[in-house]
């Protein structure tokens, strides 16, 4: 029941340079259950937050996979597991064929360079007491990318200008910059280690629309220039459509639909994906004032006590009796189009 490589090939749109590389990231049966404990001395286990509860996907070199869903559905946790900032409860994460979950901290070092992350909040992800230049220099020094301080300085200047910042900004502090500029610094820092794979966790959500477009264009240019692979986590469906080759929709710790980008938006099959798409108003009054939103009622249940059967059944407009009993498998209903629903 895992989306396999052949399905991926038939479905996935080619990356811009026309080639689709080998599988770079392969996530298999990923589960991340956080314990909830009570009591100070004995730490009695009283429950589990099933933040990620059985997730499978593959990302090919040069590809951008979008991961969308509402807050708390497990997007960030999935990213943190790939980064090995969390040790998953279950499952495997292969990067270039190596299972990261089996590696110790020393062996992980190499991958901490190859896999980078860009965060949502450009305000809190930068150290307020460090100059911009130092912040980009530091990881290069720590990972021994460039031992020569003078050359590193040169590299910092280059990275700043690649990211659309004036190299003079190296002497500034984060609080002297706007949100968009700080996000550019975050990107420059991620690039400094010459990564192969970047996890972008809501990189434009905190930015104004006009600045958002600047950063999205930058991310696209860099992907092409350095043949980067992205996992692009976001809740804005129109941004994801613009940027991604394939899209996975998450709900309560699971992937409910996964398809080639155009296919997903033109032909959404899972009732949750349909509801998400219907809920987004488009910037055109003539369309909006005549459009019925078929929004889903209710709210996302807690991952501490997820509903039995299909996790979406309490909100699902087409649920049937069996939905509250059987967990629907992610099935390939069309080449490359995977849906976890028994009723489509």
């Amino acid at each position: 029941m895992t989306p396999d490589a052949s399905a991926l090939e038939s479905g996935a749109r080619l990356s811009r340079n026309g080639e689709l590389g080998d599988v770079l990231v392969d996530v298999k049966g990923l589960k991340m259950h956080f314990p909830i404990t009570e009591g100070i001395v004995f730490n009695k286990l009283v429950g589990l937050v099933k933040a990620v509860d059985g997730v499978d996907f593959r990302i090919r070199r040069g590809e951008t996979l979008g991961l969308v869903g509402e807050s708390g559905c497990g997007k960030t946790t999935t990213g943190r597991c790939i980064l090995q900032l969390e040790r998953p409860t279950e499952g495997e994460i292969f990067f270039e064929g190596v299972d990261l979950t089996k590696l110790d901290q020393v062996a992980l070092r190499e991958y901490r360079q190859k896999i980078q992350v860009i965060f949502q909040d450009p305000y809190s992800s930068l150290n307020p007491r460090m100059k911009i230049g130092e912040m980009i220099d530091e990881p290069m020094y720590v990972h021994g990318i460039e031992p020569d301080a003078q050359k590193r300085k040169q590299r910092v200047s280059e990275l700043l200008s690649v990211c659309g910042l004036n190299p003079k900004m190296a002497d500034r502090y984060p609080h002297e910059m706007s949100g968009g500029q700080r996000q550019r610094v975050g990107i420059a820092r991620a690039l400094s280690l010459e990564p192969e794979f970047i996890i972008c966790d809501e990189p434009v959500s905190a930015l104004d629309v006009s600045i958002q477009a600047q950063i999205i264009n930058l991310l696209e240019d860099l992907r092409e220039e350095y043949n980067l692979t992205y996992l692009f986590i976001a809740h804005d469906l129109s941004v994801v459509r613009h940027l991604c080759h394939r899209v996975a929709v998450m709900y309560l710790g699971r992937i409910v639909e996964l398809a080639d980008c155009d296919e997903l938006y033109d032909n959404p099959m899972h009732p949750y994906t349909r509801a998400l798409l219907s809920a987004v108003p488009v910037p055109d009054p003539e369309i909006e004032q005549n459009r019925d939103i078929s929004f889903v009622a209710g709210e996302v249940p807690s991952p501490i006590n997820p509903p039995p059967g299909c996790v979406f059944h309490p909100r699902c407009p087409i649920a049937v009796e069996s939905c509250s009993k059987e967990v629907p498998a992610l099935r390939e209903l069309k080449p490359g189009h995977w849906v976890a629903c028994t009723e489509v």
């Binding site: 706007s178 600045i211 129109s238 459509r241 155009d262 938006y265 987004v280």
Partner: peptide
């Protein structure tokens, strides 16, 4: 500058340069 779900996907977004 906004990508739109109601229109074909653009090749590239058209941002406003600079900042407020």
């Amino acid at each position: 500058s906004v990508p739109r779900l109601d229109q074909p996907r653009q090749k590239r977004l058209d941002p406003i340069d600079g900042q407020p």
